[in-house]
Structures are given as C-alpha cells and as structure tokens.
Amino acid sequence: MTHPQVTPKVPTSLKPKIESEASRPKLSTWAKALTIPVLVLILCEYLVRAGWIEPYLLPAPSSLWQSFTELAAGDLWQHIWASSLRVLIGFLIGSFLALFFAVWVGLSKQAEAFLEPSFSAIKSIPSLAWIPLLLLWLGIDEASKITLIAIGAFFPVYTNTVAAIKGVDRKLIEVAQVYRLKYWQLVQQIILPAASPGILTGLRNGLSLSWMFMIATELIAATQGIGYLLSDGRETSRPDIVILAIILLAILGKLTDRVMQALETWLLRWRDVIKQ
C-alpha cells in the first residue's frame, strides 16, 4: 500500500528568516565584488594626498567628480552617443554578416572549402593594421570607423557560430530525418536552436571586441567619441579626463554585456524547463 507524499509546511514564523538567509549570498557577492575597487580607490587617494604620486600623473579619486561635472556640462553626452552609435551599427553589420557566412560554412562542405582558409587568414591580421587601409579607401568619416568595428565583431561571432553548428548532436539530425523534415526546417527547428548557446556566446564576445575596435579607430581619426576624449586628455596632459574616459568605457561595456546576458537568458529559457 502506497502512502501519499505530504509536503511539509514551513511555519510562518520561520519564513522571514529563510528569506533573509536566501538574500545573504547576493549581499556577499556584491561585497566581494566591490572589495578590490574600493581598496584601490582608497590606496590611490592616500598616495596622492601623501605626495607619493603627483596629481598631474594620477589625480585623487575624490577630484574626479568635479571633472565629471565639468564634462557633463559640456559635450560629454555627445561623445558617449557618438561612440555608442558607432558600436551599435558596426556590431549589427558585423554580426549579421558573420551569422550569414557561419551558417553557410557550417552546413556546406563546399562553402567551407572555399571560405574557411580566407577567413582564417584574415582573422590573424591585427586590428590596427586595417586602419591605414580603411583611411585610404573610406577616408576619416564614419564609414571607416563603422567598417573597422564590423570587422572586430565579425570574427568572434563567425568562429563561435561555425563551431556551435558543427557541434550539434548528430542524433538530433537523425531524428529530424526520421520525421522527414525539409532542409530549411532542419536548419530552423533543429540546428539553430541546438547551436544557439554557442551563437549567443559569440555575439557577446563580438560586442566586447566592438568596443575595443571602436577605441582603436577613435584614437587615430575622430573628433567625437570616448576615444577622442582619451586622445584629447593625453594631448592636454589631463589624466583626469583619461581616467574618466576609461571608467565610462568600463561602465558602457558592462551595461551592454548585461543586456546581451539578459537576452541570452531569455532566449535560452528552454534549458531551465529541460532541467526541471
């Protein structure tokens, strides 16, 4: 004789305690994450105030707020908007082309034979080597900057997507053949969903490299953007501007990565259903 399972009830008096214990790991994670940055700030403040480091080399962290307010009252937001727009357009173009060619190469032996050697050779070219050529071809306008960012986004997306498609379990394809799915149904319903974790990882890496390539092009030829702020701070001997520009890059890069992470979690929510 089987007995029905009885789910134990948690007393109401214990629920607040359980909820507080559940929130402790998050608080502990935040505390650990902020420990090193706070210690670095305190150390820098002390070294500058004590005279160990000259302010013209490294400004005190407490003085950066004033520099930020001065920049914010000026054209700081235009610089942020210019860089963000370049990254967005370049990333979209580069990732779209990468997904197109990666799916083609991943599904076709002929395409792989023709394209893979050339892409592998181009991938090994350093980013700075493209800048003189792009400036000769496209000038110093937006086209050369967006093209370089698109190149930076292309290869991580392409490489991860090809690897993800080739890593799809052959058993899934055999199941699709049993159900007599057509070729594009096989791609849409089996291959791409199975390869989506690797594809999304490539997109996150491509977005990160887009910011790096944006700085590379703005440092050399730009009149607006965060890279221009870095160059202007160096030329005018303003380390506070340089440090603020670096902090802005870190914040914007982290925010965009969080957006991609949230999108990845939403698109791959089916994995949680499978685990249950």
Rank of each mutant, 00 (worst) to 15 (best):
L99Y: 04
G106D: 04
S120P: 01
L92C: 11
W77L: 13
G139R: 07
C44E: 12
S95Y: 01
S127A: 09
G94I: 07
P59S: 09
A111C: 10
E116V: 05
G94N: 08
L57H: 09
A82S: 15
V105H: 01
A102V: 05
Y56E: 14
G51E: 12
I140G: 06
H79R: 10
L64T: 06
I89T: 08
Q78W: 10
P37G: 10
V103R: 06
W52G: 05
Q78G: 10
L58G: 02
E45D: 08
F114W: 05
E116K: 04
V48K: 04
Y46Q: 11
F114Q: 07
L135I: 13
V105D: 09
A98C: 11
A33L: 14
G51V: 08
L76S: 06
L115N: 00
Q66K: 13
L27I: 11
Y46N: 08
A129P: 00
A73D: 14
L136D: 07
S108D: 03
L97W: 12
K26Y: 12
I80T: 04
L43D: 01
I93R: 03
F68P: 00
G94E: 12
L134R: 05
W137K: 00
A31T: 14
V38F: 15
L99F: 07
L97R: 02
L107S: 02
A113Y: 06
Q66T: 13
W30G: 09
S127V: 08
G94D: 11
G51L: 13
F114T: 04
S28C: 14
L85Y: 07
K32D: 05
A31R: 08
L39Y: 08
L47A: 13
K32E: 13
G106P: 05
P126C: 09
H79F: 01
I89C: 06
S62M: 10
L34K: 03
L97G: 05
Y56M: 15
S67P: 01
I93A: 06
A98I: 01
L58F: 03
S62P: 01
R49E: 12
G106V: 06
F96K: 00
W30S: 11
